[in-house]
Write a protein that binds this DNA or RNA. Structure first.
Lengths: 256, 256
DNA sequence: TTGTTGGTTTCAAATAATGAAACCTAGTTT
DNA sequence: AAACTAGGTTTCATTATTTGAAACCAACAA
């Protein structure tokens, strides 16, 4: 992935590492997973800890991502241009369809769930705010990928590992590409238990000025509640919502 | 607040700045608010942007905190030692009292709301996951402060500005100190519309091995729904919940 | 005792950060 | 149009930080 912006870049790389472990990590584990020499990594980790970007557990000698991140992320989330605009709409959608509704954006090739609403009492799907999901096997991910300009799509796909979460998961870009063309045509993407067994979703991109994708929304449910056809029946209202959100986006920018 | 860890420290200082603005901010505004010379700040901001820690809006020439933070924070949140332990308990508490229940931790002198549950349909109180609140005028904040070791309490208070949010807000440490002693005695803290007009709360610290505070929980409501006395009546169940959470904390560490 | 693993510190060499000043724009004003 | 300006970007010699091999220090095991 290249592009190493000096010390800051390295520090962030370490942060990513720690986050990726998903559990408290020892210095030595980090060292193995890291391209940096011992002393360098040591000082990076020290600095990050002193800065509360990492939390150090004295008893277990392990590191976890620090609370300062939560603080900073709140600001990021609150200021996101998309979230506040979409909020009332996904809220209403969740109310109408009585299923979980997700809002996602893409960043750095990662699909990030930035908001969710659910008005049902069923068990929580695993998606939560801030969760990162793979793009190639989620509804929102594919919806966004499909409408990304070609270069950015390639870039996003290149940094994917194509983990076979379920038997339905795409195994390589080759099988994915035709589906993306399909999605581009229909304006609708499906997740057919590709990320989690028993979980399906319909997703629609949010297109600014008709073609620039800035995010996606999806309705997710379990196969025990609804069939895929059934879910497909919700496409119109999903599309309607997506376009309503899009229409409220100011003529300004959108990074992505 | 000192302790400047080289470039990384400076970069994070800039991030804090941007987050503190709470709105898209121009380079020049940042420059005014920043101790760094133009060129230095410029490069820091560039680096952070390239690293997706900041998002740059081409049209408006402004910066906002980046999505990478959301990604990282999710990991921090998920791995927090307190959140998963407390989750079922605050859930149950919210169910029983039918009011909003908050879980907070302290970091770097900041009170951070790390989780919340509400089973009521009333308007959302402003507290949300990741929100930073002042310690001196919130229930959870005072509950934590009261049980902090003296040196860390002083440190935490020193970095506070004592903004008078409402007429009931403490104006200085002098009036706060006696109340903290009180809280230490009772094991219960109240927010008497000190942060927001019309919002009150009861809070209890979560004490590991009886005396080390690792966080706090609170029940929050509006004056229109309940009186302070009424809320006080919920103290027993709140304390009960807090001690149940505490009892599930492993003999391990706790950073704070 | 001797080895080993995991963590911490040293120190001269290599590298990156610094910041004053110059330099671009693209709007404004005269 | 020429002359300002405010906001943003780049240069470059100086300075300070980062680097990483190696040495060092536990604590624990053989």
């Amino acid at each position: 992935m290249a592009a190493n912006d000096g010390t800051v870049g390295k520090a962030l790389e370490v942060l990513d590492q720690v986050a990726a472990f998903g559990r408290p990590v020892r210095f030595s584990e980090l060292l193995d997973a890291s391209p940096f020499p011992k002393a360098t990594l040591y000082r990076l980790v020290q600095t990050l800890t002193k800065q509360h970007m990492l939390t150090f557990d004295h008893e277990r000698n392990t590191y976890t991502p620090g609370l300062r991140l939560v603080r900073l992320a709140h600001a990021a989330w609150q200021q996101s241009s998309l979230v506040p605009i979409a909020r009332p709409h996904i809220d209403q959608l969740a109310e109408e369809v009585r299923e979980a509704v997700h809002l996602a954006q893409i960043d750095h090739g990662h699909v990030i769930f930035v908001d969710k609403r659910k008005k049902t009492n069923m068990f929580d799907t695993l998606a939560q705010t801030g969760l990162v999901a793979p793009s190639y096997c989620t509804g929102v991910g594919k919806a966004i990928l499909a409408f990304l300009p070609e270069d950015r799509r390639d870039e996003a796909l290149k940094m994917q590992a194509f983990v076979p979460y379920t038997p339905h998961t795409h195994k390589s870009p080759d099988s994915l590409t035709p589906e993306l063309a399909e999605i581009r045509k229909d304006g609708i993407a499906f997740d057919r238990e590709e990320h989690e067994q028993g979980i399906i979703s319909v997703a629609a991109p949010i297109l600014r000025s008709g073609d620039k994708v800035v995010g996606a929304i999806s309705i997710a449910t379990s196969t025990s509640r609804r069939s895929l056809d059934d879910l497909n029946g919700l496409s119109p209202i999903l599309l309607e919502t997506a376009s309503r959100i899009a229409s409220e986006i100011e003529p300004w920018h959108f990074p992505n």
